[in-house]
């Protein structure tokens, strides 16, 4: 348990960074897509995407997210980590509503609460589990 407690700040900072990079990438995609619309897959359209400054926010976001994700995966369990990375869906939605004035519906609010609730439950579950850090080590007792 001491090992897990020691890793908590690493996971917290890592996941916040991951969500920030993923969110930046998606916002970059949105602005890039809007500024180069309509998408036609012609050489001219591809060139306009390359020349569009928002495309580089997406690229930087993707690279940052990849580096953060691989660093997290060195010790984080893939199942819960992959699920928790979906917090990005909520942060992108919040930015779309506040900055882009997109409409927020009741199912979206309920969906967001389910995601946040699920991630909190993962955090609670982590406190009870001693996960094997290295590959091939014995898993914790009492698993299904």
């Amino acid at each position: 348990m001491a090992g897990q407690a020691k890793m908590r700040p690493f996971y917290l900072i890592g996941f916040l960074l991951l969500v920030a990079f993923d969110t930046a990438a998606q916002i970059g995609f949105k602005f890039s897509a809007t500024n180069t619309s309509p998408a036609s897959f012609t050489p001219e359209w591809i060139l306009s995407v390359i020349c569009e400054k928002w495309s580089y926010l997406s690229l930087a976001g993707y690279l940052g997210a990849f580096v953060t994700w691989m660093t997290l995966l060195k010790t984080a369990p893939i199942g819960p980590a992959f699920a928790a990375s979906h917090l990005e869906v909520v942060t992108v939605m919040i930015i779309c509503v506040t900055w882009l004035h997109e409409k927020l519906t009741l199912p979206q609010i309920i969906g967001s609460l389910l995601i946040v609730g699920g991630i909190i439950l993962f955090a609670v579950a982590e406190a009870e589990i001693e996960e094997p850090i290295e590959l091939g080590t014995t898993p914790d007792a009492g698993t299904v």
Partner: peptide, 26 residues
């Protein structure tokens, strides 16, 4: 990877998947 699959993790996974699915559907 022999990761623990506890009842809490199962419920948490279903909650996140349902949340993503609900937002996508809406």
């Amino acid at each position: 990877f022999k990761e623990a699959l506890t009842p809490k993790r199962i419920v948490a996974s279903i909650m996140v998947a349902a949340g993503v699915g609900l937002i996508g559907w809406a």
